[in-house]
């Protein structure tokens, strides 16, 4: 009896152990640094302090944090606006073609993140493809400075995380009983009413899952802002990176990291609640 009951736990044991040893422990270790002072030459001096958290709410860092949140929010919004129609179109395609379309949607994922981001540098720089195309189209002014801007960072982040959102929304759309949309049409709802009152509410869990994913990954991202934003452009991820690798202020980097992780946990919690709330909607799926 107890053997039967404990077997699932036993099967999960290696994964749980792996997570504990290689994920939870190192994270806790780093985060614990947030409560200590930094050494004069870097490293950590184990004297308890809350000073690092006072610095986090310093207007300078709070501003970077809020700006990062704004950029991540914009990225999320744009990604959802692009991904939803794409997922909708894939779901409407003939069944045998859907797998292929999904494959193309996630194809960029299979190339290296850095290469993908550098590709945008090639596209956006002053002598890049976009400026050349503009010139060919008859534009003869100064080349546009597209690169090293907030816009370039947003484009890069949207590009990188779009496949996640398409997959998340597609998975809820594909589970939706198509007769629900037909019922709405039958009851007199036009295509717009049907989308706003039936399709969208019933796929919000997918939108939320994809959105939280993009937001969390974007707000902490430091590679894309560094490469596409140029040196001057900072997001909170860059600040954390700098604290650990340049400023050698591990305790302060840990405090910033803690704020990021807390944001992520709150968002995941909210998304989990939204999904649980929507689980009753599965009842509408064909059995």
């Amino acid at each position: 009896m107890s053997f039967q009951a404990s077997r699932p736990n036993l099967l999960a044991a290696p994964a749980v152990a792996w997570l504990l040893v290689f994920m939870v422990l190192p994270c806790l270790l780093i985060l614990s640094y947030a409560f200590f002072e930094r050494g004069t030459w870097g490293g950590v001096v184990y004297d308890f302090t809350l000073e690092n958290f006072q610095r986090v709410v310093d207007p300078l860092y709070a501003k970077i944090f809020l700006n990062s949140a704004r950029i991540a929010g914009l990225v999320t919004l744009i990604a959802i606006l692009i991904a939803y129609p794409a997922a909708y179109a894939i779901n409407r395609a003939p069944k045998h073609r859907q797998a292929m379309l999904l494959f193309f949607a996630v194809l960029p994922f299979w190339s290296n993140y850095l290469i993908r981001t550098y590709a945008w540098i090639v596209l956006l720089n002053r002598e890049g493809l976009l400026n050349n195309l503009l010139r060919m189209a008859g534009y003869d002014g100064e080349p546009l400075s597209l690169l090293y801007s907030e816009g370039a960072v947003i484009v890069g982040l949207v590009y990188n995380y779009l496949p996640f959102v398409i997959l998340a929304i597609y998975s809820t759309l594909s589970r939706l009983n198509p007769e629900l949309m037909e019922a709405s049409r039958d009851l007199g709802g036009g295509p717009v009413s049907t989308f706003l009152r039936v399709t969208l509410p019933l796929t919000m869990s997918g939108v939320a899952a994809g959105g939280v994913f993009v937001f969390v990954l974007s707000i902490g991202n430091f590679v894309t802002p560094a490469l596409l934003g140029g040196g001057r452009f900072q997001m909170i991820g860059n600040v954390v990176y700098d604290q650990f690798l340049t400023a050698n202020d591990w305790p302060f980097g840990a405090a910033l990291g803690m704020v990021l992780i807390a944001t992520m946990i709150i968002l995941l919690f909210l998304q989990g609640r939204a999904t649980a709330h929507a689980s009753g909607e599965r009842a509408g799926a064909p059995s």
């Binding site: 629900l180 037909e182 039958d186 509410p201 509408g284």
Partner: peptide, 20 residues
């Protein structure tokens, strides 16, 4: 005519009640 413009209604086999 599209479905929403037809003065007849269909009761679906799956009932298709709006779950939300």
């Amino acid at each position: 005519l599209s479905p929403e413009k037809r003065p007849l209604n269909l009761m679906f086999q799956s009932y298709a009640l709006f779950p939300h």
